[in-house]
Design a protein around this nucleic acid. Structure first.
Length: 414
DNA sequence: TCTGGGGTCCTAGGACCC
DNA sequence: TCTGGGGTCCTAGGACCC
């Protein structure tokens, strides 16, 4: 049964265009958090040959000259459009894996997958306004390659049938293979392996010995042997991370603690939504590594809680203590992050019979969660100042409206 | 003087992905 | 002046056990 990979074209940039018909055929780029780097480009913008990840400040001139429209990232909008697209894809098959915000694998047993792909593509374009490409092949890794080729084809579709597989692999540079990153590509090139075809000529034992089991699976996939399964169920997170750069560098310990507590709130909400509890958290801080003439410092610490917890004050207290332990005076800090680790589903945990628990914490937290659910996720916060515009707040100067998820920001038609 | 071998579990860090 | 964030999986190496 062939696997289809449905992948949105320039997803973030396309999302920005959905509600802005005036931007049709215009170059559009979307920035990372903090309006730092370019993370997505419309096809028109791609023609300017900007490497992904270039910082915005290096491009101001070029963008002005070419009338490039620049947006801060609007994850609320992208997430909403994504789920609409995914539900359309799920109508095509009951075996779909949503792989990321902008792509999904689907098991297809249509006799004519190409015409099926054309239908779905047309539907997503018409109903959501999103251009997608579809690649079809025997395995996920091959479907990725097919999709890549499809993106260049006029109709956005490509099918790697078994008969043409070898020819395609001969045309595929090794670094374009899904799962082969920079390090492995470099390693292979030094061994005179330049294409996916060269790679599958290697012996299994060699790949296993000098690379990893992951690389070996990739090799099998390229040969048409399924080695990476479809993962339909949404798995609980193994870790939850909130990590952000500051709008401005921070030197003061109190500011640092305030920012990091606020990130802990983000992580906490994510955890509660999935009915998880955490037993430890890891806190990390760093200076700006791009400032070569400034003193650099980075450090992290893992804090263990006495037991699995979903009680917000436990985490806030741990952040407070943790930051104080790794903070050093005299540095300009750029970023902190909080990672909740050792997560378990609440319902799978057996309560500790020796713990002192009269249920009060549970009741308090439950009330807080309910209030936040009703009035916005940071209605009740723990031990951080409210209604201020802190200096660490990230920049989002070029944000588009939340067209689909906020009544105040619906599209206006005159 | 001669100083094993096999196993598990945990953690840090790297590679990779979008 | 201005350089992203959020994940997963694997491996090596140490601690520990018998």
């Amino acid at each position: 049964m062939p696997i289809a990979l449905i992948d949105c074209n320039s997803f973030y940039a396309s999302c920005e265009k959905v509600f802005r018909p005036d931007l049709k055929d215009k170059p559009v780029v979307v920035l990372s958090n903090n309006d730092g780097c370019i993370v997505a480009m419309s096809p028109e913008a791609k023609k300017l040959n900007i490497p992904r990840g270039t910082p915005l400040f290096k491009l101001q001139e070029l963008f002005k000259k070419n009338d490039v429209h620049v947006f801060s990232s609007n994850y609320t909008l992208y997430g909403d459009l994504s789920s609409r697209i995914m539900s359309l894809i799920m109508e095509s098959s009951d075996n779909v894996e949503v792989y990321s915000i902008d792509e999904a694998f689907a098991n297809w047993n249509f006799s004519d997958p190409l015409s099926q792909a054309a239908d779905i593509r047309k539907k997503i374009k018409k109903w959501i306004g999103m251009p997608v490409s579809i690649g079809i092949a025997e395995t996920k890794t091959l479907a990725k390659i097919a999709n890549h080729i499809g993106k260049k084809e006029a109709n956005g579709l490509f099918w790697i049938r078994e008969e043409i597989r070898e020819d395609i692999l001969k045309e595929t540079p090794i670094e374009d293979v899904w799962g082969i990153g920079r390090q492995s590509a470099l390693f292979l090139r030094n061994k005179n392996i330049f294409t996916a075809y060269d790679f599958i000529q290697l012996e299994d034992w060699w790949v296993k010995k000098y690379m990893t089991i992951v690389a070996l699976r990739t090799k099998w996939e390229l040969m048409g042997k399924k080695a990476i399964n479809m993962e339909q169920e949404v798995k609980e997170n193994r870790a939850i991370l909130s990590s952000k750069s500051f709008g401005n560098p921070i030197t003061d310990l109190d500011d640092l603690i305030e920012a990091t507590k606020s990130y802990a709130h983000d992580a906490f909400h994510k955890m509660v939504r999935q009915n998880l509890k955490a037993k430890s958290l890891s806190i990390y801080l760093t200076t700006n590594r791009f400032r070569e003439n400034e003193k650099q410092y980075m450090n992290s610490i893992t804090m263990d809680l006495p037991d699995y917890s979903d009680y917000l004050p436990d985490f806030i207290k741990a952040v407070d203590r943790g930051i104080r332990m790794i903070y050093k005076e005299g540095y300009k800090y750029k970023k902190t992050s909080v990672m909740f680790i050792d997560l378990r589903l609440t319902k799978e945990l057996t309560p500790d019979i020796f713990a002192i628990n009269d249920g009060r914490k549970d009741r308090v937290q439950k009330s807080i969660n309910e209030i936040n659910k009703k009035y916005g996720k940071n209605c009740v916060v723990c031990n951080i100042p409210r209604d201020t515009l802190p200096k660490w707040k990230m920049k989002r100067d070029l944000l588009s409206p939340q067209y689909t998820t906020n009544w105040e920001e619906l599209l206006m038609v005159n």
